[in-house]
Computed example of a mutant assay.
Amino acid sequence: MSLPKPVMRGMLAKRLRIHLPLAFVVSFGLALTYKFAVAEPRKRAYAEFYKTYDSIKDFNAMREAGVFESVRPTGK
């Protein structure tokens, strides 16, 4: 009793019919998951931060702390 010959002709096309659409569905699903689980919350967090952010106040605080070498702290 011998083993049957493996089917080689058309094997790539047969596999691609299954795997190619599956790869597209999985990648699209992962892209949507990333968008709604990571990107959107990050955008909301940045928007919320910059609603109340005062760059002048932050600059003055860093200047008083001595962070900058080219700006002297003001003597109050």
Rank of each mutant, 00 (worst) to 15 (best):
P21R: 01
V25S: 04
Y53K: 03
A47I: 06
Y50R: 03
A13E: 10
K14V: 06
F24P: 00
M62Y: 15
R15E: 11
K43G: 02
A39P: 00
E48D: 11
A47Y: 09
K35Q: 08
P41G: 00
A37N: 06
F59G: 03
P21D: 03
K76L: 10
K43D: 03
K14S: 13
Y34I: 07
R17S: 11
R42P: 00
V67F: 15
R63A: 14
K57C: 03
L12G: 07
V67L: 11
M11N: 14
F36I: 05
G75H: 12
L32K: 03
I56N: 09
H19N: 09
V25H: 01
A13I: 02
A37K: 05
V7K: 13
D58S: 14
E48P: 00
K76T: 15
T33K: 12
S27N: 11
A31N: 07
M62P: 00
V38R: 09
R42N: 08
Y46A: 05
P73L: 13
A13R: 04
K76D: 10
E64P: 00
K43V: 01
R72Q: 08
P21K: 06
P73N: 10
R17K: 13
P73S: 02
K14E: 12
S55T: 15
M8L: 14
K43S: 01
V38Y: 09
F24E: 04
M11Q: 09
D54K: 09
E48A: 15
K5Q: 05
V25R: 01
Y34N: 04
R17L: 11
R9L: 14
P6F: 10
F28R: 07
D58M: 13
I18S: 04
Y50G: 01
K43M: 03
M62W: 09
S27V: 12
V7C: 09
R15L: 13
K57Q: 02
L30R: 11
Y53S: 02
Y34W: 10
